[in-house]
Amino acid sequence: MNVFRILGDVSHLLAMVILLVKIWRSKSCAGISGKSQILFALVFTSRYLDLLTNFISIYNTVMKVVFLLCAYVTVYLIYGKFRKTFDSENDSFRLEFLLVPVIGLSFLENYSFTPTEILWTFSIYLESVAILPQLFMISKTGEAETITTHYLFFLGLYRALYLANWIWRYHTENFYDQIAVVSGVVQTIFYCDFFYLYITKVLKGKKLSLP
């Protein structure tokens, strides 16, 4: 465990908490892509199947449970409790355009052709594109609530910190997880234009609105 990974996990948890607080306090999921949240719940479900079989550490187990809870509670709030505020018209990204290539690739490029390994690979590939429906929705509506941009900032930051963690682990323990690293780079690249808007606009107190 290193500082980049801890900061990454904290940033990831913070993002999920910010989103839950936003939905709960505003009693609305306006501007939030329910499809992205479904994909994140799918990512954690397919990645954390070893929760009961492969004990790594208390930290690992607790965080996996917390992440799963946050993901499913968020999906419940969007499609259940506050479904009347859900903007399904603008949440129109076709999930099959993501799921089909991701499933295909996880069968083609994986470390071993076993069910748990293919599901883990699927979760890694899926996570790298899971934010696209949300970014697509923002580009369609042309703006995002400030708290939503904070959610996206910490969500993008988490995987960027994981890239630093992989560089650190490569140099200190010669650890190299190619599938996770390549997917993590792709995932972080998707956030670049958002990061630019976040830093040049939101941090200057302006509202995030796309030209």
Partner: peptide, 10 residues
Amino acid sequence: DQEPQGHDEL
């Protein structure tokens, strides 16, 4: 390419 089985990251 063989990689660590039992992934230890979240």
